[in-house]
């Protein structure tokens, strides 16, 4: 009877030991996993805050840079926009201001797609003196019926003491080549 009781008492003790070991194992394993997860989460949250800070810093730095390098009284910026229903494919562009090459640009497929989806590219930003100026834009590309085109257009503008923004808009035309339009914003 005593022996039986002892045995009866021993069984739960063994079970308790096994259960305790299992619990300890689970706790250790679980803690290990959760601490790794917590560390990952902590890094992610720190990285997110840092990304936001760097974005804000970049905004402020671009403003400062513009103020420093391109003050309003000499600033000129050229933009390019495209409006087409796959009628032409822009390949490259050359920009001259007063006969001097300001910039040339060769387009990638992704840039063309971005332009076609409403994106506007800042082609050039520089400094010019006040007074009259001549802007020449040369476009190379493929128009309707695989027709290769090289088209240039000149635009005269007056620079005042305010920033000068000029948008060059390319759009579909009734012919095989696209149309070009200059829009002055200031």
């Amino acid at each position: 009877m005593t022996l039986l009781l002892e045995q009866k008492q021993k069984i739960p003790q063994t079970q308790i030991i096994i259960l305790s070991l299992l619990t300890v194992c689970l706790l250790v394993f679980g803690t290990g996993l959760s601490s790794a997860y917590a560390a990952e989460q902590s890094i992610q949250s720190k990285a997110q805050k840092l990304k936001a800070d760097v974005v804000e810093l970049n905004r402020a730095l671009f403003e400062l840079e513009e103020e420093l390098l391109y003050p309003a009284d000499t600033q000129v910026a050229l933009f390019l926009s495209v409006k087409t229903k796959n009628k032409f494919l822009l390949d490259s562009v050359e920009i001259k201001i007063d006969g001097k090459i300001a910039t040339t640009y060769l387009y990638t497929e992704s840039e063309i797609k971005a332009l076609e989806q409403g994106g506007i590219q800042r082609l050039y930003m520089g400094n010019i003196s006040s007074g009259p100026h001549k802007l020449t834009a040369v476009f190379n590309g493929q128009g309707a019926n695989d027709h290769y085109f090289r088209k240039d257009k000149t635009f005269n503008f007056e620079k005042s003491n305010r920033s000068k923004f000029i948008e060059i808009g390319l759009s579909d035309s009734t012919g095989v080549e696209p149309e070009f339009k200059f829009t002055e914003w200031h």
Binding site: V55, A72, G119, I120
Partner: peptide, 28 residues
């Protein structure tokens, strides 16, 4: 007469510049 403060970019151009980067997956 050094007018340094640059004029704000017109809405259309600013929006377009953002879209140009966004559609190329240049999210930053």
């Amino acid at each position: 007469v050094n007018n340094t403060a640059t004029s704000p970019l017109p809405e259309r151009l600013a929006k377009g510049m953002m879209l140009f980067e966004l559609h190329q997956d240049n999210f930053f």
